[in-house]
Nucleic acid binder design. Structure first.
Lengths: 204, 204
DNA sequence: GCGTATCGGTACGAAGACGTATCGATGAGT
DNA sequence: ACTCATCGATACGTCTTCGTACCGATACGC
């Protein structure tokens, strides 16, 4: 989405004339994100990533200049939209399915966001990568979901709760480990949607 | 709580025969918490705290053995209950006031929680101190507030939304910076309560 | 097939932080 | 008034990490 080599035939996400295949690159990215989840951003070392992927530190530094740039690249590459494809024709049912979908990956993403800790507030590139990869796509998908409900007349367009639904959904994901020491699973999120989100929207 | 000199007359929170007054101790604690908020837990150094408080590194290490223990002590000492004292006789009004109260300190506490990042999930003592200082008291006060509302008959005791109110309130505090890049202020929280919390509780 | 650039491995330098030790000065308790 | 523990300052050792440099080997492009 950011920069595209217009006339390269195959996937060139990596760099210029690198021998690193996209699969290999994904190994690097998966490794660093996993180590961030386990040890926190600050404690992750390039040596550690190199060791766990059996590559050389030189290779990592050749491809990505610094650790923040490397992590930002890994974040961007991990972009996926979990809420995509949910469209049952009913807003309430969409939200229920979204809750279940979110519950399935909440552990990994919440842990990642938590483990990035202070780093993403200090490093502009990390912050941008984070929003681009984990935040904006989900928000957009969720808002599409809500917009469809509005279009179908299930909720009035000026319903005051509409703008807070993303904050409710993602907020509870993020706060659950703090409050009760465990990640929000699909069941918890489903009950949460049933007990608060739907009533707030007047969907009973 | 851990070890107590049973027959010391005055405030002995610090240690045995230290020359550090409680006011001086609070300077240390304020300094380290502020540096955590600004730089993140990992980047805070004992040297930095010593320099900013014009004390010696030796003093810090004499009083608190290690950096995690020092930070945990600072967290515990910062324990305050912001929701205490809110009791208007109406649950809806209590929640509105709680929202405004929370908005006033949300920046500092949210930043602190964010800046502690992965550390508090890794260090059991930090986690305990954090819950003891910032989480449990607020949760308890909020639940008291809800319990009073139930006792007054404003909400049924088995209302399904009841158990999620703390998660809603604190979740939105914690997620706002991620979603929109700014901390939740009093106005935002007030609108949030009006638009989602009260309707979810059936308080219109 | 050949040249060349990248790969993996490792050694290296610089920087910073933790935690300890030493040392003179100062202030509290008797 | 005296003693002595603690204070502030600073130097030190150790460890870790970032990021670079070098080195032979290997695999891709022509």
């Amino acid at each position: 989405m950011t920069s595209q080599a217009a006339d390269e035939p195959e996937t060139v996400a990596a760099s210029r004339r690198s021998k690193i295949t996209p699969e290999r690159e994904r190994e690097f990215f998966d490794a660093v994100l996993e180590q961030i989840r386990e040890c926190g951003y600050e404690s992750v070392t390039m040596e550690g990533v190199a060791a766990s992927t059996r590559c050389s530190k030189s290779t990592l530094y050749r491809q990505w200049r610094t650790k923040p740039q490397f992590v930002a690249a890994a974040l961007r590459a991990s972009r996926r939209v979990r809420f995509a494809g949910i469209d049952t024709g009913s807003l309430a049912e969409d939200l229920r399915q979204a809750a279940r979908a979110a519950g399935d990956w909440s552990g990994k993403d919440t842990k990642l966001l938590q483990a990035l800790g202070h780093a993403w507030t200090a490093d502009k590139e990390l912050a941008e990568a984070l929003r681009e990869a984990l935040v904006n796509p989900e928000i957009a998908a969720l808002q599409d979901m809500l917009a469809r409900g509005v279009a179908r007349g299930e909720v009035r367009a000026d319903h005051p709760a509409l703008e807070y639904i993303p904050a409710m959904m993602f907020g509870v994901l993020r706060i659950r480990p703090v409050l009760s020491g465990q990640y929000a699973d699909a069941d918890y999120l489903a009950r949460f949607v049933e007990a608060t989100v739907l009533p707030a929207l007047g969907l009973t």
